[in-house]
């Protein structure tokens, strides 16, 4: 690092003497790229010192979030979310099954997060890795904790028939902050679900599906996630890119619902965080919830008006 600092000093001297030429600009840019490759942590620190980040964002600023609802016509509900480059698509398929024995008037929600080798060189083909499995468990925990859908709503006939909702989330482009994107995709896709009406014929005891009549799910809560990473044990930044994630010393995801209650405070280790920093993160998560609710409502409205 010192070597580089000296180098830059010399460079400045040259700048004063020489006139600013095009060759010089190219040299400067390639130097910055070299700095980034050789000392990625120092590179990020030099930005964080000025309260900004390499992509021009402030510390508490999310990347641009875009949402498309109903992207997969063959699924019962679907949504595509982009947070910056990170892209997650969620498809929901409903199937009929018999309810669990211990809870005869409940249905099932089965989330799964897939990180295919397509989305990043970090992931290899074959059995899902630790990150994918942990993300799947995280989504299952959110569904359980926030009660996004009441499982009783998925029951058709007590002890006989219920819906199983398979919620498959697939990452198409991994550039950090996977969990936030998954939660938005899941919520938007659930709001998009239209299930055909099913009744049990009393005479034959078989299920009859009426595809003409469709009903929407009753979404009880609207949870959203906000992820943070900690740099150098003290600087907290929101919505990390893949590079920021790999350089950070700790990660944390806060999930809140529209009543500002916490559904999840997930911090899988890393350096410790003080109470005040935690409080700041929670406040940021609460405002993020408002932003995302607004986004989902606008997209649903625009889908309705286009029909």
């Amino acid at each position: 690092m010192k070597l580089y600092a000296n180098h830059r000093k010399n460079n400045k001297k040259k700048k004063k003497k020489k006139k600013f030429t095009q060759v010089h600009v190219v040299y400067q840019i390639s130097m910055a790229a070299g700095f980034k490759t050789a000392e990625p942590l120092e590179y990020h620190r030099s930005f964080l010192k000025e309260n900004c980040r390499p992509d021009g964002r402030e510390l508490g600023e999310f990347r641009i979030t875009t949402l498309n609802i109903g992207s997969i016509s063959t699924a019962h509900g679907s949504a595509l979310v982009k947070i910056g480059n990170t892209t997650v698509i969620c498809g929901i398929k409903g199937e009929l099954a018999s309810p669990p024995n211990d809870a005869p008037n409940n249905g099932y929600i089965v989330p799964n997060v897939d990180l295919p080798p397509l989305c990043s060189s970090k992931f290899r083909p074959g059995a899902p890795g630790e990150q994918a499995q942990a993300a799947s468990q995280f989504m299952a925990d959110i569904i359980e904790s926030s009660e996004i859908i009441l499982k009783e709503d998925l029951c058709i006939e007590k002890g006989k028939l219920c819906w199983v909702l398979y919620c498959d989330m697939m990452c198409l482009d991994y550039d950090g902050n996977l969990l936030d994107a998954c939660v938005i995709a899941l919520l938007a896709a659930l709001k998009n679900v239209q299930l055909p009406e099913v009744s049990i014929n009393k005479d034959t005891d078989l299920a009859e599906v009426n595809t003409d009549k469709k009903r929407r799910l009753n979404i009880a809560k609207h949870p959203t996630a906000s992820s943070f990473v900690v740099f150098d044990d003290s600087i907290v930044i929101v919505d990390p890119t893949a590079e920021e994630e790999s350089l950070s010393t700790a990660m944390m995801t806060v999930v809140t619902d529209e009543e500002d209650r916490l559904c999840m405070l997930h911090k899988p280790g890393g350096t410790s965080l003080s109470g005040e920093k935690l409080q700041d993160c929670i406040s940021r998560a609460v405002t993020r919830n408002r932003e995302i609710s607004k986004l989902i409502n606008t997209v649903i409205q625009s889908v309705k008006t286009h029909k």
Binding site: S145, R261, L265, P268, S272, L273
Partner: peptide, 12 residues
């Protein structure tokens, strides 16, 4: 300080 946190259920 808190190094790790894992929660279940909703709370204020």
């Amino acid at each position: 300080r808190v190094m790790m946190s894992s929660t279940k259920g909703s709370f204020s």
